[in-house]
Design a protein around this nucleic acid. Structure first.
Lengths: 189, 189
DNA sequence: GTCTATACGAGGATAGAC
DNA sequence: GTCTATCCTCGTATAGAC
């Protein structure tokens, strides 16, 4: 099954934003990779702002679907923790960081609609993780303050991706940082 | 004592890069704030690449001086830990993140000379922090694997700054994440 | 050192033909 | 839906006068 043009545009745009940020990608860049003219992109996405807003929305929804798949699996809580972290490691392919981490850096230059999507992304992710930690708390597997802990973990995951960018062995860096810490914090029961 | 023009340019440029990133600031922006014409900036910094390279160099050296001041104070190891974290919290004024965190995000579009400066920044910071942790290890105050732990802490600090950007109460967010974690990990002796 | 003037390309966006 | 053609603005950078 072939992807429609709008989807192709979003796919290419996503890769570019994650690599270069909001200000450093252009319709011309997309044009080359998708194989249509600049003007044609405006048919699908009237403005750059619109395009990026749709992009973040799609990304956010995909993230929540991935989280829900984890929650609905039969995995133990600590396994779920690691699967969540894996979302970030797998995202790191080709040194690309999380779309919303990149856009959090670019926050000051984003149109308001996009800023709001970003906020929602982090709120939802944090809420999901808080819920997972709360379960571990309830069953006395882990001692923790779920909300703070959730914020801290997300900070570490996003930060680890950022650091990994400027390192030759990016995957190694990420794993070196993240997995030992998780293993220490969330022992399997 | 008045600042010379080159310093004023760097100061303004630093604020702009930390706010908007490498691609989203221009000579025109600096021009307005410093009060000279675009062309005059080229006298001090022939190209944007040169300017940013100097900027990162200055920032890196300032960071190392700040770290050395901490190390040479009479503070206990855990106090030094908190003072190090404070460098990041204080840097967060006006939601500006660490210059090198921003440029780590922009890494893919940076000229090579700047990429190398960034790498050096993180290497030096990590080395300094590793050394501090090693001391705590040696005196058996903390049990830890200094290198991994250093990477993890820096990741968390940079990540916390990033998250704090897209939050209304940025300082609160940062402190909520960072201080409880430090207090737990590095109890005062 | 700073200015004016200018070159030249890239960026986002629109109009109108097909 | 996609194209060509075009507009206008902004970006980096240079030349040369003061």
């Amino acid at each position: 099954m072939e992807k429609n043009t709008a989807t192709q545009i979003l796919d290419v745009a996503q890769e570019m934003v994650r690599n270069r940020g909001y200000s450093a990608f252009s319709y011309a860049d997309i044009s080359k990779q998708v194989g249509i003219r600049k003007a044609s992109i405006h048919y699908h996405f009237p403005s750059k702002d619109e395009l990026v807003k749709e992009l973040v929305k799609r990304y956010r929804e995909g993230m929540m679907r991935a989280c829900d798949r984890i929650a609905q699996s039969n995995a133990s809580l600590d396994q779920q923790m690691f699967q969540f972290a894996d979302l970030y490691r797998n995202g790191l392919k080709d040194k690309q960081i999380c779309l919303c981490a990149m856009l959090a850096a670019d926050y000051a230059v984003l149109p308001q609609a996009v800023q709001e999507e970003i906020q929602t992304f982090f709120q939802e992710t944090e809420a999901w993780l808080t819920n997972l930690l709360q379960q571990g708390c309830d069953t006395q597997q882990w001692t923790c303050q779920p909300e703070q802990e959730a914020k801290g973990l997300i900070a570490m995951l996003q930060g680890a991706q950022l650091l990994a960018r400027s390192t030759t062995d990016s995957n190694t860096t990420f794993e070196q940082v993240v997995y030992p810490l998780l293993a220490a914090k969330f022992p399997s029961s």
